[in-house]
Protein backbone atom coordinates (compact mmCIF):
# COMPACT_ATOMS: atom_id res chain seq x y z
CA UNK A 1 0.00 0.00 0.00
CA UNK A 2 2.93 2.29 0.67
CA UNK A 3 4.31 2.42 -2.86
CA UNK A 4 0.99 3.53 -4.29
CA UNK A 5 1.35 7.14 -3.26
CA UNK A 6 1.34 8.64 -6.71
CA UNK A 7 -1.19 11.39 -6.96
CA UNK A 8 -4.10 10.39 -9.16
CA UNK A 9 -5.03 12.54 -12.13
CA UNK A 10 -7.28 15.43 -11.25
CA UNK A 11 -10.90 14.72 -12.10
CA UNK A 12 -12.48 16.69 -14.89
CA UNK A 13 -14.32 19.61 -13.32
CA UNK A 14 -17.97 18.86 -12.85
CA UNK A 15 -20.51 21.46 -13.81
CA UNK A 16 -21.03 23.80 -10.93
CA UNK A 17 -24.71 24.17 -10.33
CA UNK A 18 -24.71 27.54 -8.65
CA UNK A 19 -22.80 29.26 -11.41
CA UNK A 20 -24.91 27.85 -14.22
CA UNK A 21 -28.05 29.04 -12.47
CA UNK A 22 -26.70 32.51 -11.92
CA UNK A 23 -25.55 32.79 -15.53
CA UNK A 24 -28.97 31.60 -16.68
CA UNK A 25 -30.71 34.14 -14.48
CA UNK A 26 -28.49 36.89 -15.83
CA UNK A 27 -29.44 36.02 -19.42
CA UNK A 28 -33.12 36.09 -18.47
CA UNK A 29 -32.86 39.41 -16.69
CA UNK A 30 -30.90 41.07 -19.51
CA UNK A 31 -33.22 39.77 -22.25
CA UNK A 32 -36.33 40.77 -20.33
CA UNK A 33 -34.99 44.23 -19.57
CA UNK A 34 -33.91 44.75 -23.17
CA UNK A 35 -37.37 43.88 -24.47
CA UNK A 36 -39.03 46.19 -21.98
CA UNK A 37 -36.66 49.02 -22.77
CA UNK A 38 -37.42 48.60 -26.44
CA UNK A 39 -41.15 48.78 -25.73
CA UNK A 40 -40.66 51.82 -23.52
CA UNK A 41 -38.51 53.48 -26.17
CA UNK A 42 -41.21 52.82 -28.74
CA UNK A 43 -43.78 54.33 -26.44
CA UNK A 44 -41.76 57.47 -25.77
CA UNK A 45 -40.50 57.84 -29.33
CA UNK A 46 -43.87 57.19 -30.96
CA UNK A 47 -44.15 60.71 -32.48
CA UNK A 48 -40.69 60.36 -34.03
CA UNK A 49 -41.12 57.02 -35.78
CA UNK A 50 -44.71 57.33 -36.89
CA UNK A 51 -46.21 59.84 -39.26
CA UNK A 52 -49.79 59.58 -38.02
CA UNK A 53 -51.40 60.43 -34.68
CA UNK A 54 -52.89 57.85 -32.37
CA UNK A 55 -56.46 58.70 -33.27
CA UNK A 56 -55.83 60.49 -36.55
CA UNK A 57 -58.16 59.29 -39.28
CA UNK A 58 -57.09 58.96 -42.88
CA UNK A 59 -60.48 59.08 -44.59
CA UNK A 60 -58.89 58.14 -47.88
CA UNK A 61 -57.96 54.67 -46.82
CA UNK A 62 -59.94 52.43 -44.51
CA UNK A 63 -58.81 48.86 -44.02
CA UNK A 64 -55.81 49.48 -46.26
CA UNK A 65 -53.33 46.63 -46.46
CA UNK A 66 -49.81 47.13 -45.06
CA UNK A 67 -47.46 49.12 -47.26
CA UNK A 68 -47.43 52.55 -48.82
CA UNK A 69 -48.09 55.44 -46.47
CA UNK A 70 -49.46 53.10 -43.81
CA UNK A 71 -46.68 50.77 -42.69
CA UNK A 72 -49.01 48.23 -41.10
CA UNK A 73 -52.16 49.27 -42.87
CA UNK A 74 -55.25 50.93 -41.38
CA UNK A 75 -58.27 49.73 -39.45
CA UNK A 76 -61.92 50.05 -40.34
CA UNK A 77 -61.93 53.69 -39.21
CA UNK A 78 -58.92 54.55 -41.34
CA UNK A 79 -56.53 54.93 -38.37
CA UNK A 80 -52.88 53.96 -38.87
CA UNK A 81 -52.16 50.64 -37.12
CA UNK A 82 -48.37 51.17 -36.74
CA UNK A 83 -48.84 54.54 -35.05
CA UNK A 84 -51.60 53.24 -32.83
CA UNK A 85 -49.57 50.21 -31.71
CA UNK A 86 -46.73 52.53 -30.71
CA UNK A 87 -48.90 55.06 -28.91
CA UNK A 88 -50.82 52.30 -27.17
CA UNK A 89 -47.61 51.15 -25.51
CA UNK A 90 -47.71 54.34 -23.44
CA UNK A 91 -51.12 53.55 -22.05
CA UNK A 92 -50.62 49.81 -21.61
CA UNK A 93 -47.21 50.07 -19.99
CA UNK A 94 -48.25 53.04 -17.87
CA UNK A 95 -51.46 51.53 -16.57
CA UNK A 96 -49.88 48.14 -15.85
CA UNK A 97 -46.92 49.57 -13.98
CA UNK A 98 -48.99 52.11 -12.08
CA UNK A 99 -51.57 49.49 -11.11
CA UNK A 100 -48.94 47.06 -9.87
CA UNK A 101 -47.17 49.83 -7.96
CA UNK A 102 -50.42 50.74 -6.26
CA UNK A 103 -51.12 47.08 -5.52
CA UNK A 104 -47.65 46.62 -4.05
CA UNK A 105 -47.99 49.64 -1.78
CA UNK A 106 -51.48 48.80 -0.57
CA UNK A 107 -50.86 45.06 -0.23
CA UNK A 108 -47.55 45.52 1.55
CA UNK A 109 -49.03 47.94 4.07
CA UNK A 110 -51.92 45.58 4.79
CA UNK A 111 -49.62 42.57 5.11
CA UNK A 112 -47.16 44.43 7.31
CA UNK A 113 -49.80 45.54 9.79
CA UNK A 114 -51.67 42.23 9.80
CA UNK A 115 -48.50 40.18 10.16
CA UNK A 116 -46.98 42.24 12.93
CA UNK A 117 -50.05 42.92 15.03
CA UNK A 118 -51.63 39.49 14.65
CA UNK A 119 -54.76 38.77 16.69
CA UNK A 120 -58.16 40.09 15.68
CA UNK A 121 -56.80 42.75 13.32
CA UNK A 122 -54.95 40.06 11.39
CA UNK A 123 -58.11 37.96 11.26
CA UNK A 124 -60.29 40.83 10.01
CA UNK A 125 -57.80 42.01 7.36
CA UNK A 126 -57.04 38.54 6.09
CA UNK A 127 -60.70 37.54 5.85
CA UNK A 128 -61.30 40.68 3.80
CA UNK A 129 -58.44 39.61 1.55
CA UNK A 130 -59.95 36.13 1.35
CA UNK A 131 -63.23 37.61 0.12
CA UNK A 132 -61.45 39.69 -2.53
CA UNK A 133 -59.51 36.66 -3.71
CA UNK A 134 -62.59 34.47 -3.85
CA UNK A 135 -64.05 36.53 -6.72
CA UNK A 136 -62.93 35.62 -10.23
CA UNK A 137 -60.67 38.40 -11.50
CA UNK A 138 -62.95 39.61 -14.24
CA UNK A 139 -66.08 39.58 -12.13
CA UNK A 140 -64.28 41.70 -9.56
CA UNK A 141 -62.94 44.01 -12.25
CA UNK A 142 -66.44 44.25 -13.72
CA UNK A 143 -67.85 45.18 -10.34
CA UNK A 144 -65.21 47.84 -9.70
CA UNK A 145 -65.48 49.21 -13.21
CA UNK A 146 -69.26 49.32 -12.90
CA UNK A 147 -68.94 51.06 -9.55
CA UNK A 148 -66.33 53.62 -10.52
CA UNK A 149 -67.00 53.88 -14.23
CA UNK A 150 -64.60 53.86 -17.15
CA UNK A 151 -61.39 55.86 -17.24
CA UNK A 152 -57.67 55.47 -16.92
CA UNK A 153 -57.47 56.13 -13.18
CA UNK A 154 -60.34 53.78 -12.49
CA UNK A 155 -58.66 51.09 -14.56
CA UNK A 156 -55.53 51.45 -12.47
CA UNK A 157 -57.56 51.14 -9.28
CA UNK A 158 -59.45 48.13 -10.63
CA UNK A 159 -56.31 46.23 -11.54
CA UNK A 160 -54.63 47.21 -8.28
CA UNK A 161 -57.58 45.89 -6.26
CA UNK A 162 -57.39 42.61 -8.13
CA UNK A 163 -53.68 42.22 -7.44
CA UNK A 164 -53.21 43.69 -3.97
CA UNK A 165 -54.39 40.59 -2.01
CA UNK A 166 -51.46 38.53 -3.29
CA UNK A 167 -48.98 41.06 -1.91
CA UNK A 168 -50.82 41.31 1.38
CA UNK A 169 -50.50 37.56 1.79
CA UNK A 170 -46.88 37.39 0.70
CA UNK A 171 -45.77 40.18 3.00
CA UNK A 172 -47.84 38.95 5.92
CA UNK A 173 -46.32 35.48 5.72
CA UNK A 174 -42.84 36.96 5.45
CA UNK A 175 -43.41 39.31 8.40
CA UNK A 176 -44.77 36.52 10.55
CA UNK A 177 -41.57 34.50 10.16
CA UNK A 178 -39.31 37.56 10.40
CA UNK A 179 -40.81 38.86 13.61
CA UNK A 180 -39.85 35.68 15.47
CA UNK A 181 -36.19 36.24 14.60
CA UNK A 182 -33.79 37.62 17.18
CA UNK A 183 -33.14 40.88 15.37
CA UNK A 184 -36.71 41.98 16.06
CA UNK A 185 -36.24 41.28 19.77
CA UNK A 186 -33.02 43.22 19.50
CA UNK A 187 -34.89 46.18 18.03
CA UNK A 188 -37.53 46.01 20.78
CA UNK A 189 -34.96 45.94 23.55
CA UNK A 190 -33.09 48.77 21.85
CA UNK A 191 -36.18 50.87 22.39
CA UNK A 192 -37.35 51.04 18.77
CA UNK A 193 -40.93 52.21 18.31
CA UNK A 194 -43.48 49.97 16.59
CA UNK A 195 -43.39 52.15 13.47
CA UNK A 196 -39.61 52.04 13.56
CA UNK A 197 -39.58 48.26 13.77
CA UNK A 198 -42.05 47.95 10.91
CA UNK A 199 -40.45 50.54 8.68
CA UNK A 200 -36.76 50.06 9.29
CA UNK A 201 -36.52 46.36 10.13
CA UNK A 202 -39.47 44.28 8.99
CA UNK A 203 -40.29 46.09 5.74
CA UNK A 204 -36.86 45.90 4.08
CA UNK A 205 -36.49 42.28 5.14
CA UNK A 206 -39.91 41.25 3.84
CA UNK A 207 -39.72 42.68 0.35
CA UNK A 208 -37.64 39.99 -1.38
CA UNK A 209 -40.60 37.95 -2.69
CA UNK A 210 -42.38 41.15 -3.67
CA UNK A 211 -39.43 42.22 -5.80
CA UNK A 212 -39.58 38.91 -7.61
CA UNK A 213 -43.33 38.79 -8.11
CA UNK A 214 -43.92 42.42 -9.12
CA UNK A 215 -42.40 42.26 -12.65
CA UNK A 216 -44.24 39.03 -13.41
CA UNK A 217 -47.34 40.70 -12.10
CA UNK A 218 -46.88 43.64 -14.52
CA UNK A 219 -47.20 41.14 -17.35
CA UNK A 220 -50.40 39.71 -15.91
CA UNK A 221 -51.71 43.21 -15.31
CA UNK A 222 -51.22 44.01 -19.01
CA UNK A 223 -53.19 40.92 -19.95
CA UNK A 224 -55.94 41.86 -17.50
CA UNK A 225 -56.04 45.35 -18.94
CA UNK A 226 -56.21 44.03 -22.50
CA UNK A 227 -58.91 41.59 -21.45
CA UNK A 228 -60.99 44.32 -19.83
CA UNK A 229 -60.62 46.53 -22.89
CA UNK A 230 -61.50 43.64 -25.16
CA UNK A 231 -64.70 43.22 -23.17
CA UNK A 232 -65.37 46.92 -23.45
CA UNK A 233 -64.66 47.59 -19.77
CA UNK A 234 -61.39 49.36 -20.42
CA UNK A 235 -60.61 52.53 -22.28
CA UNK A 236 -63.19 54.20 -24.44
CA UNK A 237 -63.15 53.29 -28.09
CA UNK A 238 -60.93 55.58 -30.15
CA UNK A 239 -58.17 55.58 -27.56
CA UNK A 240 -55.12 53.59 -28.67
CA UNK A 241 -54.90 50.51 -26.45
CA UNK A 242 -53.82 47.04 -27.53
CA UNK A 243 -56.77 45.15 -26.06
CA UNK A 244 -59.24 47.63 -27.54
CA UNK A 245 -57.47 47.47 -30.91
CA UNK A 246 -57.65 43.67 -30.95
CA UNK A 247 -61.31 43.87 -30.06
CA UNK A 248 -61.94 46.44 -32.78
CA UNK A 249 -60.15 44.43 -35.42
CA UNK A 250 -61.54 41.05 -34.43
CA UNK A 251 -64.34 41.17 -36.93
CA UNK A 252 -61.97 42.17 -39.76
CA UNK A 253 -59.56 39.34 -39.06
CA UNK A 254 -62.30 36.89 -39.89
CA UNK A 255 -62.54 38.62 -43.27
CA UNK A 256 -58.84 38.01 -43.93
CA UNK A 257 -57.60 41.45 -42.88
CA UNK A 258 -55.15 40.16 -40.28
CA UNK A 259 -53.24 43.45 -39.89
CA UNK A 260 -56.00 44.98 -37.78
CA UNK A 261 -55.53 42.64 -34.81
CA UNK A 262 -52.24 40.82 -35.18
CA UNK A 263 -49.81 43.77 -34.65
CA UNK A 264 -51.37 44.89 -31.31
CA UNK A 265 -51.53 41.23 -30.29
CA UNK A 266 -47.85 40.78 -31.07
CA UNK A 267 -46.97 43.96 -29.19
CA UNK A 268 -48.88 42.68 -26.18
CA UNK A 269 -47.21 39.29 -26.45
CA UNK A 270 -43.72 40.76 -26.64
CA UNK A 271 -44.28 43.09 -23.66
CA UNK A 272 -45.73 40.37 -21.45
CA UNK A 273 -42.83 38.12 -22.48
CA UNK A 274 -40.40 40.85 -21.42
CA UNK A 275 -41.96 41.11 -17.99
CA UNK A 276 -42.09 37.33 -17.62
CA UNK A 277 -38.42 36.87 -18.51
CA UNK A 278 -37.41 39.62 -16.11
CA UNK A 279 -39.52 38.13 -13.33
CA UNK A 280 -38.27 34.59 -13.95
CA UNK A 281 -34.70 35.85 -13.97
CA UNK A 282 -35.16 37.63 -10.65
CA UNK A 283 -36.73 34.50 -9.21
CA UNK A 284 -33.85 32.33 -10.40
CA UNK A 285 -31.39 34.73 -8.88
CA UNK A 286 -33.24 34.77 -5.56
CA UNK A 287 -33.25 30.97 -5.55
CA UNK A 288 -29.55 30.80 -6.38
CA UNK A 289 -28.80 33.14 -3.49
CA UNK A 290 -30.78 31.01 -1.10
CA UNK A 291 -28.63 27.96 -1.83
Amino acid sequence: MTDLRTAGPAEAPKAVRGSRDSRFSRVLIITGSAILMLVAAAALGAPLVSSWGATEIDPASTLAAPGGSHLLGTDSNGMDIWSRVLYAARLDLGIAVAAVALAVVAGTLLGLVAGYRGGWLDDVLMRAVDILQAFPTFILALAVAALLGNGTVNLIITIAVVNAPAYARLVRAEVRTQRELPFVDAAVTSGASTVGILWRHLLPNSLTPVRVIAPLNCGWAMLTLAGLSFLGLGVSIPTAEWGAMISLGAADVVGGRWWTSVPPGLALFVSVLGFSLLGEGLQERANAKRR
Partner: peptide
Protein backbone atom coordinates in the same frame (compact mmCIF):
# COMPACT_ATOMS: atom_id res chain seq x y z
CA UNK B 1 -36.22 52.77 29.71
CA UNK B 2 -35.87 49.66 27.57
CA UNK B 3 -32.43 50.77 26.49
CA UNK B 4 -31.30 50.65 30.15
CA UNK B 5 -31.16 46.88 29.87
CA UNK B 6 -29.46 45.38 26.83
CA UNK B 7 -29.26 41.83 25.53
CA UNK B 8 -26.40 40.14 23.71
CA UNK B 9 -27.85 37.29 21.69
CA UNK B 10 -26.81 33.70 21.13
CA UNK B 11 -27.05 33.97 17.36
CA UNK B 12 -24.81 36.93 16.56
CA UNK B 13 -25.71 37.29 12.89
CA UNK B 14 -29.42 36.59 13.36
CA UNK B 15 -29.68 39.32 15.96
CA UNK B 16 -28.66 41.93 13.40
CA UNK B 17 -31.26 43.19 10.96
CA UNK B 18 -30.22 41.63 7.62
CA UNK B 19 -30.81 44.74 5.52
CA UNK B 20 -29.42 47.31 7.92
Amino acid sequence: LRTRAQLVFQDPIGSLSPRR
